[in-house]
Simulated scan of single mutants.
Amino acid sequence: MSHSIPMTQEGYQRLQEELKKLIRVDRPKVVQDIAEARGHGDLSENAEYDAAKDRQGFIEGRIKELNDKIARAQVINPAELDTDKVVFGATVTIFDVDSGTEVTYQIVGEDEADLKQGKISVTSPVGKALIGHKLDDEVRIKVPSGLRIYEIIDIKYE
Rank of each mutant, 00 (worst) to 15 (best):
V30T: 13
F95D: 09
E110V: 15
K134A: 12
E112G: 11
N67K: 12
I141T: 15
A37I: 01
A71D: 12
V97Q: 07
I23F: 05
I152S: 08
V143E: 00
E10W: 02
A79R: 15
Q117C: 00
E158V: 08
D26V: 05
E65C: 08
L81S: 08
G109D: 12
R148A: 05
K85D: 15
P28G: 08
V31L: 15
D33F: 07
D154Q: 10
L147A: 00
V103W: 00
A113W: 05
G118A: 04
Y150C: 06
K116R: 13
L147G: 00
V30M: 10
D54I: 14
T93L: 03
R27I: 10
E110D: 15
R24V: 05
I120P: 01
V126R: 01
D68T: 14
I34G: 02
T8G: 03
P6K: 14
D154W: 00
T104H: 00
Q16T: 14
E110I: 05
N67W: 02
G11V: 12
F95L: 15
Q13C: 09
P78V: 11
S121D: 07
Y105L: 01
I5E: 15
H133P: 09
V31E: 13
L43D: 03
S44L: 04
R62Y: 09
E17H: 10
R38E: 11
N67V: 11
G100F: 11
A37D: 11
R62F: 04
E151H: 12
G146L: 04
L115G: 10
P6N: 13
E151R: 14
I131K: 10
V92A: 01
V122A: 08
I76R: 01
I76E: 07
T83F: 04
R148H: 10
D114Q: 13
L19W: 06
D114C: 06
L147R: 07
D33L: 12
E18K: 13
P144K: 02
G118F: 01
Q56C: 09
Y150R: 05
D84S: 13
D50T: 14
G11Q: 04
H133I: 05
I152D: 03
S124Q: 06
L19D: 06
T8V: 11
Q56A: 09
V75L: 10
V25W: 00
K29V: 14
T93K: 12
G127I: 02
M1H: 15
D42A: 07
T123N: 12
I94G: 01
T8W: 01
V75K: 04
T91I: 04
I152E: 06
G39I: 10
R55M: 04
K128A: 07
I59M: 11
T123S: 14
E48V: 04
A113S: 08
P78A: 09
F95A: 09
E102Q: 13
D84M: 14
G127A: 07
A113Y: 02
I63E: 06
G89V: 15
I141E: 01
I107L: 12
E48M: 14
S121A: 08
Y12Q: 05
K128G: 03
K156S: 05
A113E: 07
D136L: 09
Y157I: 09
G41Q: 05
A73M: 05
A73H: 07
E80V: 10
P125A: 06
H133C: 12
D136V: 01
L66C: 13
T101M: 10
G89Q: 09
